[in-house]
Amino acid sequence: MNAPVEPAKMHDCRDAFVATLEQLGAANADIVAVCNDSVGSSKLAGFRDKFPERLINVGIAEQNMVGVGAGLANGGKIPFVCAAAPFLTGRALEQIKADVAYSETNVKLVGISSGLAYGELGATHHSIEDFAWIRALPNVPVIAPADRIETAAVIEWAAGFEGGCFLRLSRVGVPDLFAENHRFELGRANVLRKGSDVTLIANGTLSYRAMTAADLLDAKGISARVLNMATVRPIDTEAIVSAAAETGAIVTCEEHTVFGGLGSAVAEVVVDECPVPVPMKRLGVPGVFAPTGSANFLLDEFGMSPQGIADSVTDLLKRKR
Protein backbone atom coordinates (compact mmCIF):
# COMPACT_ATOMS: atom_id res chain seq x y z
CA MET A 1 0.00 0.00 0.00
CA ASN A 2 1.70 3.16 -1.13
CA ALA A 3 -0.93 5.65 0.01
CA PRO A 4 0.63 8.36 2.17
CA VAL A 5 -1.77 7.84 5.04
CA GLU A 6 -0.64 7.48 8.63
CA PRO A 7 -1.99 4.38 10.42
CA ALA A 8 -3.09 6.44 13.42
CA LYS A 9 -5.76 8.18 11.35
CA MET A 10 -7.46 4.96 10.24
CA HIS A 11 -10.83 3.95 11.65
CA ASP A 12 -12.75 0.70 11.68
CA CYS A 13 -16.24 1.77 10.55
CA ARG A 14 -17.88 -0.97 12.64
CA ASP A 15 -17.17 1.18 15.69
CA ALA A 16 -19.19 4.05 14.23
CA PHE A 17 -21.95 1.59 13.30
CA VAL A 18 -22.41 0.19 16.78
CA ALA A 19 -21.96 3.53 18.55
CA THR A 20 -24.75 4.96 16.41
CA LEU A 21 -26.93 1.88 16.83
CA GLU A 22 -26.58 2.07 20.61
CA GLN A 23 -27.51 5.78 20.57
CA LEU A 24 -30.55 5.09 18.38
CA GLY A 25 -31.47 2.10 20.51
CA ALA A 26 -31.48 4.22 23.64
CA ALA A 27 -33.94 6.63 22.05
CA ASN A 28 -36.18 4.05 20.38
CA ALA A 29 -37.12 0.76 22.04
CA ASP A 30 -38.28 -0.67 18.72
CA ILE A 31 -34.72 -0.87 17.42
CA VAL A 32 -33.45 -4.43 17.71
CA ALA A 33 -30.41 -6.28 16.44
CA VAL A 34 -30.44 -9.78 14.96
CA CYS A 35 -27.26 -11.73 14.36
CA ASN A 36 -25.86 -15.17 13.56
CA ASP A 37 -23.43 -15.79 16.40
CA SER A 38 -21.62 -12.67 15.18
CA VAL A 39 -21.81 -10.63 18.37
CA GLY A 40 -18.04 -10.26 18.25
CA SER A 41 -17.46 -9.65 14.56
CA SER A 42 -20.48 -7.36 14.36
CA LYS A 43 -19.27 -5.63 17.56
CA LEU A 44 -22.70 -5.99 19.16
CA ALA A 45 -21.53 -6.74 22.72
CA GLY A 46 -22.22 -3.16 23.81
CA PHE A 47 -25.72 -3.23 22.33
CA ARG A 48 -26.37 -6.59 24.01
CA ASP A 49 -25.19 -5.33 27.37
CA LYS A 50 -27.35 -2.20 27.15
CA PHE A 51 -30.45 -3.93 25.71
CA PRO A 52 -30.13 -7.64 26.49
CA GLU A 53 -33.50 -8.79 25.23
CA ARG A 54 -33.25 -6.69 22.06
CA LEU A 55 -30.25 -8.62 20.73
CA ILE A 56 -31.64 -11.72 19.05
CA ASN A 57 -28.81 -14.10 18.31
CA VAL A 58 -30.29 -16.95 16.29
CA GLY A 59 -27.03 -18.85 16.10
CA ILE A 60 -25.36 -19.94 12.90
CA ALA A 61 -28.49 -19.87 10.76
CA GLU A 62 -28.55 -17.05 8.24
CA GLN A 63 -31.75 -18.00 6.44
CA ASN A 64 -33.61 -18.03 9.72
CA MET A 65 -31.87 -14.80 10.72
CA VAL A 66 -33.25 -12.85 7.78
CA GLY A 67 -36.70 -14.40 8.11
CA VAL A 68 -36.74 -13.51 11.81
CA GLY A 69 -35.84 -9.96 10.84
CA ALA A 70 -38.82 -9.81 8.48
CA GLY A 71 -41.12 -11.15 11.19
CA LEU A 72 -39.85 -8.63 13.73
CA ALA A 73 -40.57 -5.87 11.22
CA ASN A 74 -44.08 -7.24 10.77
CA GLY A 75 -44.49 -6.89 14.54
CA GLY A 76 -43.46 -3.22 14.45
CA LYS A 77 -39.78 -3.59 15.26
CA ILE A 78 -36.88 -1.98 13.38
CA PRO A 79 -34.44 -4.86 13.02
CA PHE A 80 -30.78 -4.40 12.10
CA VAL A 81 -29.81 -7.83 10.83
CA CYS A 82 -26.05 -8.09 11.15
CA ALA A 83 -23.74 -10.75 9.80
CA ALA A 84 -20.60 -11.18 7.80
CA ALA A 85 -21.59 -9.91 4.37
CA PRO A 86 -20.76 -13.07 2.39
CA PHE A 87 -23.04 -15.22 4.56
CA LEU A 88 -25.79 -12.66 4.96
CA THR A 89 -26.10 -12.10 1.23
CA GLY A 90 -24.98 -15.43 -0.15
CA ARG A 91 -26.65 -17.89 2.19
CA ALA A 92 -29.82 -15.92 2.72
CA LEU A 93 -30.28 -14.37 -0.71
CA GLU A 94 -33.70 -15.93 -1.27
CA GLN A 95 -34.86 -14.69 2.14
CA ILE A 96 -33.62 -11.22 1.22
CA LYS A 97 -35.54 -11.48 -2.05
CA ALA A 98 -38.84 -12.90 -0.76
CA ASP A 99 -39.03 -11.83 2.89
CA VAL A 100 -37.45 -8.37 2.61
CA ALA A 101 -37.50 -7.06 -0.97
CA TYR A 102 -40.71 -8.61 -2.30
CA SER A 103 -42.55 -8.40 1.01
CA GLU A 104 -41.36 -4.78 1.42
CA THR A 105 -40.41 -5.22 5.06
CA ASN A 106 -38.57 -2.71 7.20
CA VAL A 107 -35.41 -4.78 7.61
CA LYS A 108 -31.96 -3.20 7.75
CA LEU A 109 -29.47 -5.71 6.37
CA VAL A 110 -26.01 -4.91 7.64
CA GLY A 111 -23.23 -6.76 5.84
CA ILE A 112 -20.16 -6.63 8.05
CA SER A 113 -16.60 -7.21 6.81
CA SER A 114 -17.71 -6.93 3.21
CA GLY A 115 -15.60 -7.00 0.08
CA LEU A 116 -12.14 -8.43 0.60
CA ALA A 117 -12.05 -7.58 4.30
CA TYR A 118 -11.44 -11.18 5.33
CA GLY A 119 -8.45 -11.21 2.96
CA GLU A 120 -6.33 -14.19 3.91
CA LEU A 121 -9.33 -16.31 4.94
CA GLY A 122 -9.98 -16.85 1.27
CA ALA A 123 -12.67 -16.47 -1.34
CA THR A 124 -15.41 -18.21 0.68
CA HIS A 125 -15.21 -15.27 3.07
CA HIS A 126 -14.97 -12.53 0.46
CA SER A 127 -18.17 -10.67 -0.32
CA ILE A 128 -17.45 -9.27 -3.74
CA GLU A 129 -20.77 -10.21 -5.37
CA ASP A 130 -23.17 -8.52 -2.96
CA PHE A 131 -23.65 -5.27 -4.91
CA ALA A 132 -24.67 -7.31 -7.94
CA TRP A 133 -26.96 -9.67 -6.06
CA ILE A 134 -28.81 -7.10 -3.99
CA ARG A 135 -28.82 -4.43 -6.70
CA ALA A 136 -30.82 -6.80 -8.88
CA LEU A 137 -33.67 -6.77 -6.34
CA PRO A 138 -36.38 -4.09 -6.26
CA ASN A 139 -37.10 -2.15 -3.07
CA VAL A 140 -33.75 -2.57 -1.31
CA PRO A 141 -31.36 0.40 -1.47
CA VAL A 142 -27.70 -0.69 -1.58
CA ILE A 143 -25.31 1.56 0.33
CA ALA A 144 -21.57 1.38 1.04
CA PRO A 145 -20.31 4.21 3.25
CA ALA A 146 -16.73 5.40 2.88
CA ASP A 147 -15.65 6.42 6.37
CA ARG A 148 -16.75 6.39 10.00
CA ILE A 149 -18.68 9.65 9.63
CA GLU A 150 -20.65 8.52 6.61
CA THR A 151 -21.23 5.16 8.31
CA ALA A 152 -22.82 6.85 11.32
CA ALA A 153 -24.89 9.06 9.01
CA VAL A 154 -26.09 6.04 7.00
CA ILE A 155 -27.11 4.12 10.13
CA GLU A 156 -29.06 7.10 11.41
CA TRP A 157 -30.74 7.48 8.03
CA ALA A 158 -31.57 3.75 7.86
CA ALA A 159 -33.29 3.78 11.24
CA GLY A 160 -35.65 6.48 10.00
CA PHE A 161 -36.15 5.06 6.51
CA GLU A 162 -39.41 3.14 6.13
CA GLY A 163 -38.25 0.08 4.22
CA GLY A 164 -35.54 -2.47 3.78
CA CYS A 165 -31.97 -1.63 2.81
CA PHE A 166 -28.57 -3.25 2.50
CA LEU A 167 -25.72 -1.49 4.27
CA ARG A 168 -22.30 -2.72 3.27
CA LEU A 169 -19.67 -2.11 5.92
CA SER A 170 -16.02 -3.02 6.13
CA ARG A 171 -13.60 -3.67 8.94
CA VAL A 172 -10.60 -2.36 7.03
CA GLY A 173 -9.39 0.97 8.42
CA VAL A 174 -10.10 4.13 6.47
CA PRO A 175 -9.39 7.79 7.25
CA ASP A 176 -12.05 10.47 7.57
CA LEU A 177 -13.28 11.90 4.29
CA PHE A 178 -16.37 13.77 5.48
CA ALA A 179 -16.92 16.60 7.91
CA GLU A 180 -18.44 15.63 11.24
CA ASN A 181 -21.81 17.19 10.47
CA HIS A 182 -22.28 15.18 7.24
CA ARG A 183 -25.82 13.94 6.61
CA PHE A 184 -26.53 11.04 4.29
CA GLU A 185 -28.98 11.44 1.41
CA LEU A 186 -30.16 8.29 -0.37
CA GLY A 187 -29.13 8.20 -4.01
CA ARG A 188 -27.05 11.37 -3.82
CA ALA A 189 -23.35 11.20 -4.65
CA ASN A 190 -20.94 13.57 -2.93
CA VAL A 191 -18.20 15.46 -4.73
CA LEU A 192 -15.19 14.80 -2.52
CA ARG A 193 -12.88 16.68 -4.85
CA LYS A 194 -13.55 18.93 -7.81
CA GLY A 195 -11.89 18.19 -11.14
CA SER A 196 -12.31 18.60 -14.88
CA ASP A 197 -10.23 16.01 -16.78
CA VAL A 198 -11.65 12.76 -15.44
CA THR A 199 -14.04 11.56 -12.74
CA LEU A 200 -13.15 8.85 -10.26
CA ILE A 201 -16.28 7.22 -8.84
CA ALA A 202 -15.83 5.09 -5.75
CA ASN A 203 -17.41 4.03 -2.49
CA GLY A 204 -16.56 2.10 0.66
CA THR A 205 -12.86 1.58 1.24
CA LEU A 206 -12.06 2.71 -2.29
CA SER A 207 -13.06 6.32 -1.82
CA TYR A 208 -9.95 7.31 0.06
CA ARG A 209 -7.78 5.40 -2.39
CA ALA A 210 -9.44 7.37 -5.19
CA MET A 211 -8.74 10.59 -3.29
CA THR A 212 -5.09 9.66 -2.95
CA ALA A 213 -4.94 8.77 -6.64
CA ALA A 214 -6.34 12.22 -7.41
CA ASP A 215 -3.40 13.74 -5.50
CA LEU A 216 -0.96 11.74 -7.62
CA LEU A 217 -2.75 12.80 -10.80
CA ASP A 218 -2.79 16.42 -9.71
CA ALA A 219 1.01 16.32 -9.41
CA LYS A 220 1.08 15.30 -13.08
CA GLY A 221 -1.28 18.09 -14.10
CA ILE A 222 -4.41 15.94 -14.39
CA SER A 223 -7.47 17.34 -12.65
CA ALA A 224 -9.54 14.44 -11.28
CA ARG A 225 -13.01 14.84 -9.82
CA VAL A 226 -13.77 12.33 -7.07
CA LEU A 227 -17.36 11.29 -6.54
CA ASN A 228 -18.25 9.26 -3.47
CA MET A 229 -21.12 7.10 -4.68
CA ALA A 230 -22.24 5.39 -1.48
CA THR A 231 -25.63 4.51 -2.93
CA VAL A 232 -25.26 1.90 -5.66
CA ARG A 233 -29.03 1.62 -6.00
CA PRO A 234 -30.81 3.94 -6.60
CA ILE A 235 -27.81 5.32 -8.43
CA ASP A 236 -27.27 9.08 -8.77
CA THR A 237 -27.92 9.39 -12.50
CA GLU A 238 -27.58 13.16 -12.51
CA ALA A 239 -24.10 13.12 -10.96
CA ILE A 240 -22.91 10.53 -13.48
CA VAL A 241 -24.34 12.37 -16.48
CA SER A 242 -22.72 15.60 -15.25
CA ALA A 243 -19.41 13.84 -14.69
CA ALA A 244 -19.49 12.46 -18.22
CA ALA A 245 -20.40 15.79 -19.76
CA GLU A 246 -18.01 17.90 -17.71
CA THR A 247 -14.94 15.67 -17.40
CA GLY A 248 -15.30 13.39 -20.44
CA ALA A 249 -13.94 10.22 -18.83
CA ILE A 250 -14.90 8.01 -15.88
CA VAL A 251 -12.99 5.48 -13.82
CA THR A 252 -14.89 3.45 -11.23
CA CYS A 253 -13.21 1.78 -8.24
CA GLU A 254 -14.87 -0.82 -6.04
CA GLU A 255 -14.08 -3.63 -3.63
CA HIS A 256 -16.27 -5.95 -5.69
CA THR A 257 -16.16 -7.99 -8.84
CA VAL A 258 -16.36 -5.85 -11.95
CA PHE A 259 -19.40 -7.90 -12.94
CA GLY A 260 -22.57 -6.19 -11.82
CA GLY A 261 -21.37 -3.78 -9.16
CA LEU A 262 -20.75 -0.04 -8.93
CA GLY A 263 -18.86 0.12 -12.23
CA SER A 264 -21.62 -1.73 -14.02
CA ALA A 265 -24.24 0.55 -12.50
CA VAL A 266 -22.32 3.63 -13.64
CA ALA A 267 -21.79 2.15 -17.11
CA GLU A 268 -25.52 1.49 -17.40
CA VAL A 269 -26.20 5.18 -16.78
CA VAL A 270 -23.53 6.25 -19.25
CA VAL A 271 -25.02 3.99 -21.93
CA ASP A 272 -28.65 4.79 -21.21
CA GLU A 273 -28.57 8.45 -20.25
CA CYS A 274 -25.53 10.24 -21.66
CA PRO A 275 -26.10 11.95 -25.04
CA VAL A 276 -22.47 11.26 -25.92
CA PRO A 277 -20.72 8.19 -24.53
CA VAL A 278 -17.42 8.72 -22.75
CA PRO A 279 -14.44 6.43 -22.21
CA MET A 280 -14.75 4.40 -19.03
CA LYS A 281 -12.62 2.00 -17.02
CA ARG A 282 -14.09 -0.22 -14.32
CA LEU A 283 -11.61 -1.19 -11.63
CA GLY A 284 -12.49 -4.00 -9.27
CA VAL A 285 -11.86 -7.69 -8.79
CA PRO A 286 -11.51 -8.95 -12.36
CA GLY A 287 -13.84 -11.92 -12.22
CA VAL A 288 -11.56 -14.28 -10.31
CA PHE A 289 -11.42 -15.81 -6.85
CA ALA A 290 -8.75 -13.78 -5.12
CA PRO A 291 -5.42 -15.28 -4.12
CA THR A 292 -4.17 -15.27 -0.53
CA GLY A 293 -3.48 -11.86 0.92
CA SER A 294 -4.84 -9.08 3.09
CA ALA A 295 -7.60 -6.82 1.81
CA ASN A 296 -5.18 -3.98 1.22
CA PHE A 297 -2.71 -6.29 -0.51
CA LEU A 298 -5.45 -7.63 -2.78
CA LEU A 299 -6.74 -4.19 -3.68
CA ASP A 300 -3.21 -3.20 -4.68
CA GLU A 301 -2.82 -6.49 -6.55
CA PHE A 302 -5.98 -5.81 -8.55
CA GLY A 303 -4.75 -2.41 -9.70
CA MET A 304 -6.45 -0.31 -7.04
CA SER A 305 -3.47 1.12 -5.21
CA PRO A 306 -3.54 4.90 -5.60
CA GLN A 307 -0.76 4.55 -8.15
CA GLY A 308 -2.64 1.76 -9.92
CA ILE A 309 -5.77 3.88 -10.12
CA ALA A 310 -3.73 6.84 -11.37
CA ASP A 311 -2.12 4.66 -14.02
CA SER A 312 -5.54 3.49 -15.21
CA VAL A 313 -6.61 7.10 -15.52
CA THR A 314 -3.52 7.96 -17.55
CA ASP A 315 -4.23 5.03 -19.88
CA LEU A 316 -7.88 5.94 -20.19
CA LEU A 317 -7.17 9.55 -21.03
CA LYS A 318 -5.34 8.36 -24.16
CA ARG A 319 -8.76 7.22 -25.40
CA LYS A 320 -10.42 10.50 -24.60
CA ARG A 321 -11.37 12.64 -27.59
Binding site: Q63, G67, G69, A70, D99
Partner: peptide
Protein backbone atom coordinates in the same frame (compact mmCIF):
# COMPACT_ATOMS: atom_id res chain seq x y z
CA UNK B 1 -48.77 -11.13 6.32
CA UNK B 2 -45.72 -12.06 4.25
CA UNK B 3 -45.01 -13.12 0.70
CA UNK B 4 -44.50 -16.85 0.48
CA UNK B 5 -43.90 -19.18 -2.41
CA UNK B 6 -40.41 -20.56 -2.06
CA UNK B 7 -40.79 -23.19 0.65
CA UNK B 8 -39.25 -22.92 4.07
CA UNK B 9 -39.77 -19.17 4.46
CA UNK B 10 -42.82 -18.89 6.67
CA UNK B 11 -41.58 -20.38 9.92
CA UNK B 12 -38.53 -18.12 10.31
CA UNK B 13 -40.78 -15.11 9.68
CA UNK B 14 -43.23 -16.51 12.22
CA UNK B 15 -40.42 -16.79 14.77
CA UNK B 16 -39.69 -13.10 14.21
CA UNK B 17 -43.36 -12.19 14.62
CA UNK B 18 -43.68 -14.14 17.84
CA UNK B 19 -40.47 -12.57 19.13
CA UNK B 20 -41.85 -9.11 18.38
CA UNK B 21 -44.98 -9.93 20.40
Amino acid sequence: ETNTGPLGHGLPVGVGMATAA
